[in-house]
Amino acid sequence: MMFSLDVEAVMFSSDGKQIASASEDKTIRLWDASTGNHQKTLADHSDWVTAVVFSPDGKQITSASCDQTVRLWDVGASLHSVRLFGTSLGALRKFRKWHREIETPGTITTFTFSADGQFLRTNLGLFKVGDTGFNGGLSLKGGWICYGVAPVFLILPGLQPSCYDVRGDYITIGFADGRVLCLKFDCRALEQLFNLK
């Protein structure tokens, strides 16, 4: 396997037969894990692809990008031309037909599927994999702690957040001056308040 640009993420499929890679050139590439052969390039993001993950059943690949979208791709459909024309010719044509897109309030850099494949746990909170899109979750945007897209708590103007992470009802924020802040929110109450369910 050889890459021309920085690879931002790699992930094995659940059966270990495929590898997906995400890179700065705005693409996701599928590889045969046993041979290292390139199988297909998935291309339609407008910015770097920052994270990639297979669904638990291996039938979907989900990609996240700096373009603030998550896209779901059908693995079987993407490999159709490979089955028809073989790996040499089939891998040349880029696959641009994702079947679902979720707009996000920021850039997702890490995510995993829930065991049932219904949700994505991300650094921005919880996303439902379905037509409803973003399903709430804590995030940090423009100096505000937000739930979904709604601002709920303003960080003091003198503090400069440099990073954050979310786990359930907790958000932890790192600041440029070396401080770390951890806050707990009642996400169930916020969901009811903002009618996200």
Rank of each mutant, 00 (worst) to 15 (best):
K128H: 12
W73M: 03
D165T: 09
L193K: 08
D116H: 13
L190H: 05
S78N: 05
G178D: 02
W73C: 08
G178V: 01
K26Q: 12
D177C: 00
L5T: 10
E24W: 12
T109H: 14
K59G: 09
M1W: 15
D47C: 07
F113M: 06
V52M: 06
K40P: 02
S4V: 02
R83K: 14
T172G: 15
N195H: 03
L92A: 07
H38S: 10
L5K: 15
V180G: 09
S14H: 04
L156D: 15
G76V: 01
Q160Y: 08
F95M: 07
K128M: 06
T87Y: 00
V166E: 05
A77T: 01
K94T: 03
A176H: 09
S13T: 14
Q60T: 00
H38R: 14
Q39E: 01
E8L: 13
W48C: 12
P161W: 10
L124S: 11
G76Q: 12
C182Y: 00
V82K: 01
I171S: 12
S65Y: 02
I19N: 03
C163I: 00
V166F: 02
W73K: 09
D116W: 10
G36V: 09
L92V: 13
T109A: 11
G148W: 04
K128Y: 03
I61P: 10
D25G: 04
T112Q: 12
K59E: 12
F111T: 12
G130E: 07
S13I: 06
F134G: 09
